[in-house]
């Protein structure tokens, strides 16, 4: 099959469709860079989505739990080895994704006789200022995009992700606190998982509090990477009640 270009392209395209089909029910997740740190939020049902990776790093995943777990273990092994052989300060999200996770996902995706990763990740690195925060969207085919500061969304469909990201960017001006950010993310999550188009759903006042009903029976996971801390580790797991939600 490798020797026949047409069949190779067809196989890759089939594979892309297969992965998209498998992760289309994945629960959206978000990350936002705030003045005092980075907030990550995911809503799961039975399996975890938000994880600490290293002192200043965390991730939130979408897709098959086993594949999120494989990627998480790879990321944790890579950064701890790096921190031991060099120093914790040398662990960087850019290097982890560019030289570690990205190539591994791409190789797995293009090895058409093996199983691809049915997962996508949003990774965060807290910096000394919000402008130096780094968010990375890692796709199932190994593609990735970096952004400094701001808000990022992770949804299984790009066409759903973009309006949510646009709305969240407007709804979370500089200075927004953790509580307001988490609530806006939950509103966006509720609209993304609903049946109506995002723009239509988010403008409907009745939908503003719909997330409270929609999270019934699910687990809201909130990760917080503090910008400053007395200890090297900045990650903390938060609950809705800790944010008065």
């Amino acid at each position: 099959m490798i020797e026949e270009p047409y069949r190779w392209l067809e196989a890759i395209e089939n594979r892309r469709e297969y992965v998209r089909e498998q992760i289309k029910e994945g629960s959206p997740a978000f990350a936002a860079c705030l003045d005092e740190g980075i907030l990550l939020l995911g809503v799961g049902s039975g399996s975890s989505k938000v994880f600490e990776v290293f002192d200043r790093h965390a991730l939130v995943g979408l897709g098959h739990p086993a594949d999120i777990e494989r990627l998480r273990q790879t990321a944790i092994d890579t950064v701890h080895l790096e921190a031991f052989m060099r120093a914790p300060e040398d662990v960087s999200l850019r290097r982890l994704v560019s030289f570690g996770l990205g190539p591994q996902l791409k190789t797995s995706f293009e090895h058409i006789f093996g199983s691809p990763f049915l997962a996508e990740l949003l990774l965060a690195e807290v910096g000394t200022t919000p402008e130096r925060d780094l968010l990375t969207r890692l796709h199932f085919d190994g593609g990735f995009e970096f952004q400094s500061g701001g808000v990022a969304a992770l949804a299984s469909r790009r066409e759903a992700e973009e309006p949510a990201l646009r709305w969240l960017t407007g709804a979370l001006p500089r200075g927004t606190g953790r509580r307001e950010t988490a609530e806006a993310m939950l509103q966006a999550w509720a609209c993304l998982t609903g049946t109506r188009p995002f723009d239509e759903a988010i403008e409907n006042p009745e939908n503003r509090a719909a997330w409270r009903e929609q999270i019934q029976g699910k687990t809201v996971e909130i990760g917080w990477l503090a910008r400053t801390s007395r200890t090297p580790g900045r990650y903390e797991s938060l609950t809705l009640s800790q944010l008065d939600l």
Binding site: S48, V53, I76, H80, A83, F84, G233
Partner: peptide, 16 residues
């Protein structure tokens, strides 16, 4: 000390 520091944190993060 460095081995232990990294080991303990690696275990905590990877094994949750």
């Amino acid at each position: 000390a460095k081995v232990l520091q990294t080991s303990f944190e690696h275990y905590r993060r990877s094994q949750l």
